[in-house]
Write a protein that binds this DNA or RNA. Structure first.
Lengths: 134, 134
DNA sequence: ACCCGACTACTACACCCGTAGTACTACACG
DNA sequence: CGTGTAGTACTACGGGTGTAGTAGTCGGGT
């Protein structure tokens, strides 16, 4: 199951996926309603996007009566992994530390947050005792 | 001053920009030659891409005799800022710490690297007399 | 039994990317 | 001075996105 597919998703596509990720299942109307606040899209627009996402295998659907109930077919984490990794490759020669450095220089993250993450890592590492995941 | 333009650039476009970033100036032929190893593109392909990038203001050019000499019109850092920020927004609700956490859980970065970055940050901060991490 | 309304499928269109062929032009060399 | 050639501009085409209208269908309520 560990496919290293490259999930390049646009902002609109992600907006739809976000709805599915936290709704588990949703009809076209549900998705449209959920997006209404941030972006007003016609029902047909949402339907078209979902159809295309379905064609690409990014979402799955089942029929209920005469409507489709969609759900995400890719996990949020999988998408994150894929997209972050892509960006890292493109802009930082795949060097994660360089990316974090960038965040630091841009003031996106401060010492406290960094320290907290480091502590958490240490804890987790400690519990497992060994090298690590994957 | 700080323009918050969104520079959404594809991999190919970035490949071209990378060449310009470290060549300072380059003709179409130069760019094509530089990319030859990683991707074989026809001269006209590179010319088209550069033209389009020029139209978008991403690269600038001057005429030298019969040919165009291109150079990047956006700094690498500016692109990084913009693209990283976009991704953070899209996938981590704009939370940089969440992104770093993700890198940690994915094993992209380890405790040592993190510690090194934190130390560097502390050093820089230290000059400012701010609080510091132990 | 019918029609309305809910849904989907199909179609459309402007615009971008990747890729590259062809057409045009102006300089350089013989 | 003529022509080859380098180099750009124009054109093209298959795909994808974003957006949405229209057409077709099926089921439920009166």
């Amino acid at each position: 199951m560990g496919n290293a597919e490259s999930h390049a998703l646009s902002e609109t596509q992600l907006a739809i996926l976000r709805v599915l990720w936290d709704a588990e299942e949703a009809s076209v109307a549900d998705v449209q309603a959920a997006l209404e606040s941030e972006r007003a899209l016609a029902l047909t627009t949402v339907a078209t996007m979902l159809s295309r996402l379905h064609r690409r295998g990014v979402v799955a659907r089942r029929t209920e009566g005469r409507q489709f109930i969609y759900r995400a077919a890719v996990a949020e984490d999988e998408v994150r992994r894929s997209m972050v990794s892509d960006l890292m490759q493109r802009l930082f020669e795949g060097d994660a530390a360089a990316l974090v450095n960038h965040l630091v220089s841009e003031g996106e993250i401060d010492a406290d947050e960094l320290a907290a993450i480091r502590r958490k890592l240490a804890r987790r590492r400690g519990a497992k005792g060994g090298r690590h995941v994957r």
